[in-house]
């Protein structure tokens, strides 16, 4: 199939992988204890909006589902668009397992409507000595990588590599460093 894809041009975009998301629900304990990270209880799902009238059905269903989830778990959510045109569903939940479950629910809903290829990433926010540390889930690769932004669009690569080294055993982490994409100015 791979050879055919090359010869005839990749006809469809890579699909989103959602299963590995749940790994964070069990691995976060290690994150909090061994890495001295504090959870900010916040996560965001980023996806591109499709320019189709049917896309509104998805946003309507998401609103409905999130409305129910908020009542059940005592969490809250906002939907916003960033300066690159991506939609961010930002969730806040004190319970990490609920947070991961809600992120998975939102991602699944997007994929079920047929927009899986438009899913970009989910970012989970933690804190380390007052500064934000993100664990980013890349839907196309189904793996996590750390993102530690500094002032002026710089990243703390040393800290990211350290975080990855500690978590590699418990989280499906991204081994290829050139896939550790930055997400500047993320609203999470």
């Amino acid at each position: 199939m791979k050879l055919l894809d090359i010869l005839l041009g990749r006809s469809s975009p890579p699909k989103a992988r959602l299963d590995a998301l749940f790994a964070l629900a069990t691995a976060y304990v290690t994150l909090l204890i061994r890495q001295e990270l504090r959870s900010s209880n916040r996560a965001g799902i980023a996806f591109r909006p499709a320019q189709a009238s049917r896309f509104r059905e998805l946003t309507k269903e998401l609103d409905g589902l999130l409305g129910i989830a908020v009542k059940e778990t005592g969490s809250s959510y906002t939907v916003q668009q960033d300066s690159y045109g991506y939609i961010w569903v930002v969730l806040e939940d004190k319970d990490m397992e609920d947070l991961v479950a809600t992120v998975h629910m939102v991602s699944t809903t997007v994929a079920e409507h047929g927009y899986g290829p438009l899913l970009l990433a989910a970012a989970f926010r933690f804190e380390e000595e007052g500064r934000p540390v993100y664990w980013v889930y890349n839907y196309k690769r189904g793996r996590f990588y750390p993102f530690v932004p500094l002032e002026g669009r710089k990243r703390d690569n040393a800290e990211e590599l350290r975080l990855k080294a500690v978590m590699a055993a418990e989280l499906p982490t991204e081994p290829q460093l050139d896939q550790w994409y930055a997400l500047w100015d993320l609203p999470v």
């Binding site: 975009p13 890579p14 591109r48 690159y84 991506y86 290829p117 438009l118 899913l119 970009l120 990433a121 890349n138 196309k140 690769r141 290829q176 050139d178 896939q179 994409y181 930055a182 997400l183």
Partner: peptide, 11 residues
């Protein structure tokens, strides 16, 4: 970078 991430490509 964002588009490449969405297409599963390195930067």
């Amino acid at each position: 970078g964002r588009l490449a991430a969405g297409m599963d490509l390195p930067m």
